[in-house]
Amino acid sequence: MRRYWLCAFTLFASASWADLPSDPLGSPLWAYNIERYLGQEVTVVVDERVGLSVPDFAEDSTQVPLAVNLREFPHKVNKVVTWVDMNPVPHLFTANSTDGQLKLVSLNFRVQQASSVRAAVLDEQGVWHIDSGYVDAAGGGCTAPREVLSNSDWESEFGTLKSGLFSDRGNTRIKASLLHPMDSGMVGNVPAFFVGDVEVRNESSDNLLLTMTLAESAAENPMFVFEFEGGIPHLSIHMKDNNGYQFEGAIGEASP
């Protein structure tokens, strides 16, 4: 009986979406996760210029690097959504580029088993551009105990924020690393404890450059890289976790 329901569901999911392009990787979760994270009846195109980059295999299933390099992307970037199809909770992050000047976003993630990975970018006309990658993995990254527990002085190290400002071909790049367990709530007896919100501001104008929400696929000790178009001498980054801890730092010539 359950099988019939599953078939009916699959038929429904594919029938409701006549103009969805076919998945270049043939994953059974293509339509389902697009609908889940981008919405129903959205316009989707497959577009390599989104520049998603993931390794072919996960050397460490708890720390897999991902970058979305938008330098070749010809449109304004309104929003970037990434997810890992086969993870228990696939969502990795949603980044809102408030002025459309985002050129690169990078964050490490966990992988529970070999999986396709997606980056979807919303342009100024409301079209979603999707690029895909595939990571082979021994897996278990989402339900592995955190590494920080094996480190006896983790409480004194907790919340350490390090950052750097870099310029590359006229663009401004910020890199920030936070020591945080990022417990997803999927490990037995370990409640969810993770950074959910990130903001980057232009310190001089106080303009918001980027807001980002993180989800369960984000790795322990996140390492963020953001690149924005043009020169920005002073930036600040601000993060908040679900227990109310806040982490912030000013970056640039003004930083102490």
């Binding site: 690097p65 690169l104 990078s106």
Partner: peptide, 11 residues
Amino acid sequence: ARGLSASEVID
């Protein structure tokens, strides 16, 4: 030193 992400370094 250039602020590259790990994804860029593997290339």
